[in-house]
Amino acid sequence: MHLGHSLSHGGPDAVSAGARRPDGARRALRIGLGGPVGSGKTATVAALCRILRDEVSLAVVTNDIYTREDAEFLLREAVLPPERITAVETGACPHTAIRDDISANLEAVEDLEDEVGPLDLILVESGGDNLTATFSKGLVDAQIFVIDVAGGDDIPRKGGPGVTTADLLVVNKTDLAPHVGSDLARMAADARAQRAHLPVVFQSLRGEDGVRDVAAWVRERLAAWTA
């Protein structure tokens, strides 16, 4: 957990990595979801919203590359009321907005807490990017990297910051493995070698309750955050 203290010396907080809001209340846990285009980040966010929305107060920030498509998908699927979904425009570079210049995303999470809070959890979804795109610790407390079996079963072996360092690696669309010739056992072994003790989840959102392992991991993080 990132519990950095505020550098401000009066007035409203300058930064928002601190665990407390200006009024002293605990802010929401912020979890980032990144990964390549089409790996199933938005589908995972939607599934998490459906399973967690009756347990906790949550909201979503999306970072699309050139449209509001991800936000609109979540709205269409009605996984959350519209006021709980915010789209950040990223100037063609989602990785800049989640890592190098996080100001627009910090505003989005703070505005959500102001307007629909108190919130327990905010999911920050990156637009599809490359294997080096990771979230700044100033923006999220933990991050999930989502890849899929159809993107090539050599991705875990190739590593990269997302695969190697994310707090949770999700290998999505396992139902497709036989159709695209991906070797799940090899992907699991490569991921273990790259990630030491960091967890990996293999999931297919086609099946009933497909997101349950990721949801369980999120619940653990929430419990640790509020402990």
């Binding site: 550098l7 401000s8 009066g10 007035g11 409203p12 300058a14 930064v15 100001s103």
Partner: peptide, 17 residues
């Protein structure tokens, strides 16, 4: 937001308020 971390100052805090 960036300025208040880079160059902490009362005037910037007042502006934020």
């Amino acid at each position: 937001r960036a300025a208040r971390v880079a160059w902490p100052s009362g005037e910037l805090d007042a502006l934020a308020g």
